[in-house]
Amino acid sequence: MAEPVLEIRNLNVDYGLGDRAVHAVRDVNLTLHRGEVLGLAGESGSGKSTLAYGLTRLLAPPGVITGGQVIYHPAQGSSYDVLALSDNGLREWRWAETAIVFQGAMNSLNPVHKISTQLMDVLKAHEPNMSAHSRAARAREMLKLVGISADRMDAYPHQLSGGMRQRVMIGMALILQPQVVIMDEPTTALDVVMQRQILGQLIELRERLGFSVIFITHDLSLLVEFSNRIAIMYGGRIVEEAPANTIYRDALHPYSKGLLSSFPALRGPRRELTGIPGSPPDLAGMPAGCSFHPRCPKAFEPCGSAIPVLGRPDTPDGAGRSVACWLHPAEQPVG
């Protein structure tokens, strides 16, 4: 396995303070390796978006990080904790080392500026020694890289289609060649055809530029096809983490299995499906013990009282995966 580029250790994020605080992300331990695509799957209230905003320190109030570290390993130099960076350090780190493509990225572009201006703005902020001419050249190169012809340089966002705006956002995220790109539901609002085109382009770019990706989405079937490893979140915690194929063929956690069977198959035999009964948990009123146990078909004695620990299960392929479930008690806890 390649070396880690981003290590999230015991991250905790709350909304609000004191007794009424809602624990949106709880004791999350996750590692992103160099050159890897890590898929982060979950539904409403799973904490996946909060995790992304937490680790990039983009949480809007009342979100607050209440514990943990996010260790970043740059290509050169010593590693550091992103959560401990000063304001200046953070400004340098953002966009240059780690970039984020937001959910609804199509609406994240400034409507009163041309896309070239917005692209060059990133360069101006991080590379003050670059001449205007080289900035424009770099912006043009970036647009070409994401499949937008240079003659659209002076277009305003409203003159571009949704798919093109999404590609501009991806171009903007890559313009400083960061090591880590976080994408929060990047293709949710797009057609499947556009989605496949954009993801195809992203794969190509990743092979060329060598960055790592954290891909956040509720669409598990997309992750199975696109990512190397998948982490599944439920009720603010990671409940399972394994290589993509392993999750698809041999998921251990009942929630993972339930989620996988919530996607009607387009190919292969037509199966009767049920999804998962009940509703995603209310983070303000979480059940005792395992947060999934009220909906779990396999719940038994310890599930209602003790929270399962995320760790390596006792299976032949246990070395490369982890799960938080009393059916597979952790041999070796993670984190």
């Binding site: 499947v192 055809v193 556009m194 989605q195 496949r196 096809e225 993509a244 190919r267």
Partner: peptide, 27 residues
């Protein structure tokens, strides 16, 4: 084109090619 574009977990990881079949710009 629609059916080919839908996510297919049985396709190999990373084996996504921009569909050569779509001669337009996907829109």
């Amino acid at each position: 084109l629609l059916i080919d574009s839908a996510p297919d977990p049985d396709r190999l990881t990373g084996d996504i090619d921009p569909l050569e079949e779509d001669r337009g710009n996907g829109e």
